[in-house]
């Protein structure tokens, strides 16, 4: 049997289902509500078993597909994009919305633009103005709270 993309995905899912079922066996019921009650473990077992059975089914029924999802370069861009988003949340936690949003917007414009080169000045203006708009709209029009950062709190 040859391994292909679908089979690798199925294997990952099977592994996840097994870990899930193992973890589900450790759930402790708080109290006995009624003697007929099946308890909090049944449903996680049920969901995990469906996943297990279907992943095995997928493993054996998989067919080879020609087209790859994307190229290696595109994977790298996606990786950097994910990293930027993680960094943004970290910055939101530390320095808050005002300081972290303009650089994040600037970085995102560069990452999302594909092959074209965005203009630096235009992007900087966009980043600052957008931050101001989001702040004003959310804080004063919609009266929503924004993270202010632990360093400035």
């Amino acid at each position: 049997m040859k391994m292909n993309k679908d089979r690798w995905i199925s294997l990952c899912l099977i592994l996840f289902a097994l870990i899930w079922i193992w973890q589900a066996s450790k759930i402790k019921p708080l109290l006995a509500v009624a003697s007929e009650d099946v308890g909090p473990k049944l449903f996680p077992y049920f969901a995990g078993s469906i996943l297990l059975v279907c992943s095995i089914g997928k493993f054996f029924s998989s067919k080879e597909k020609g087209k790859p999802f994307c190229t290696k370069e595109q994977w790298i861009t996606v990786g950097i994009l994910l990293g930027t988003l993680v960094a943004y949340v970290l910055l939101l936690y530390l320095v808050g919305f005002f300081v972290s949003t303009p650089p994040m917007l600037f970085a995102l414009v560069y990452l999302l633009n594909g092959r074209k080169k965005p203009k630096v000045v235009k992007t900087i203006i966009f980043a600052v103005v957008m931050t101001a708009i989001v702040f004003l709209v959310f804080r004063y029009v919609l009266s929503v709270m924004l993270p202010m950062g632990i360093l400035f709190d």
Partner: peptide, 9 residues
């Protein structure tokens, strides 16, 4: 969990 409130995962 619903009904008895046991902590899960």
């Amino acid at each position: 969990s619903p009904i008895d409130g046991a902590k899960r995962m």
